[in-house]
Design a protein around this nucleic acid. Structure first.
Lengths: 201, 201
DNA sequence: TCCTTTTTGTTATACTGTGAAACAGTATGT
DNA sequence: ACATACTGTTTCACAGTATAACAAAAAGGA
């Protein structure tokens, strides 16, 4: 990584922030596929060519936005998941959905831009990795197929649940979503895994 | 609908089939976003403007392909799900995955073209509707939120499982995927629903 | 403050893809 | 064989991508 903040030109910081903000606001108000570089640079009040001086493609800019925003959620889930044997799963779920509620815009962007297949795959893999690390020790998952299919299932289920919640105008509130999370995402999977791992899948 | 087959000009049938086949083969070999109308018409050995004489957009042609191909899977799942209380869930799962294995190309196209967010939403809704109809009577689901969140969960989980299976070169075989389907998709959800419906979610 | 370096703005350009027009040619069913 | 409907060719205006050259402005060190 970059240990010192690596003194970056303030003009570059301004330009990049303007471009990011412009893309974010555009994704929130129209279809991602219909967004053009020209629109972004106009909204960012910068020259068209300036975009290409910082990014090669539109997807690259999108990735930068998502990577930045998702890093916090991922570490948050990871922290919660690691201590999940001891702590309350309902509370874990509630905290996740409270965080998502706070950063609702970011997650709306995430799901709208899943139109880019690569983005979706990457996010699913990132989340799956976390649950894989967190769940492997406590369950008796010696079979690699079971581990893969399970972590993929938890990851996609959680993301789908979040997407459903946002589409449903963030109802019900986080407290109840915590209960849904516990029973639908975690408990049910744990139950299924124990029946799966006793057979030669 | 169109009760009689509505006598369609054989030239139109040929042209449309050529365009569909061309798009299918193109999606299987390259990124959907990079496919152009010109490429399709060239591969279909037809004139560029002919495309626009039959379809308004590329997405419309894609939708026609998927609607046609998915209709059979949907009715198949629906038939199986309706008699699921009596029949064997493992067999139900096996049959689903055997069918998917037969039509693997179609499903690869489906997941590749989920890049179009609208396509994804529609398919999820279609599958969710089926499970909603099938599951409502047998479980005690009086709460509309529980019904929605559950059918959405089953739908997205099943689609994710299918996508994972295709990405994993259709391993393990359908027999084992039937077991995974039963425990991970159905049993686990049924268990979760009973705990959810006893509380005021 | 001055001077050098880096970034940004302006303008121009080549290229690709979209979507539609007019008109000529060809296949179809009766 | 005929009117009808479909398809092919050519042409066009337009929008968006990606790059280049040169001028203008901002940043940071001496």
């Amino acid at each position: 990584m970059k240990s010192p903040p690596a003194k970056v030109d303030p003009r570059v910081r301004r330009t990049r922030r303007a471009l990011r903000d412009a893309l974010v606001s555009l994704i929130l108000e129209k279809d991602y596929a219909s967004i053009t570089i020209k629109e972004i640079t106009e909204r960012a009040e910068t020259a068209y060519i300036t975009f290409y001086r910082h990014y090669e493609t539109l997807d690259q800019l999108l990735m930068e936005i998502l990577d930045e925003g998702l890093a916090e959620l991922l570490t948050r889930i990871e922290t919660l998941a690691k201590q999940s044997d001891a702590s309350d799963l309902e509370t874990e779920g509630r905290l996740i959905f409270e965080y998502i509620g706070q950063k609702a815009d970011l997650f709306r962007i995430l799901f709208k831009s899943q139109s880019v297949a690569r983005v979706r795959k990457k996010v699913v893999r990132d989340v799956a990795m976390i649950f894989q690390r967190a769940c492997t020790p406590l369950a008796r998952l010696d079979n690699p197929v079971t581990i893969n299919v399970t972590s993929n299932h938890i990851s996609t289920s959680l993301l789908s649940l979040i997407e459903w919640w946002l589409d449903n105008d963030m109802n019900p509130p986080p407290v109840k979503m915590g209960k849904v999370y516990k029973s639908l995402i975690i408990d049910s999977t744990v139950g299924a895994v124990s029946s799966l791992s006793t057979m030669s899948v």
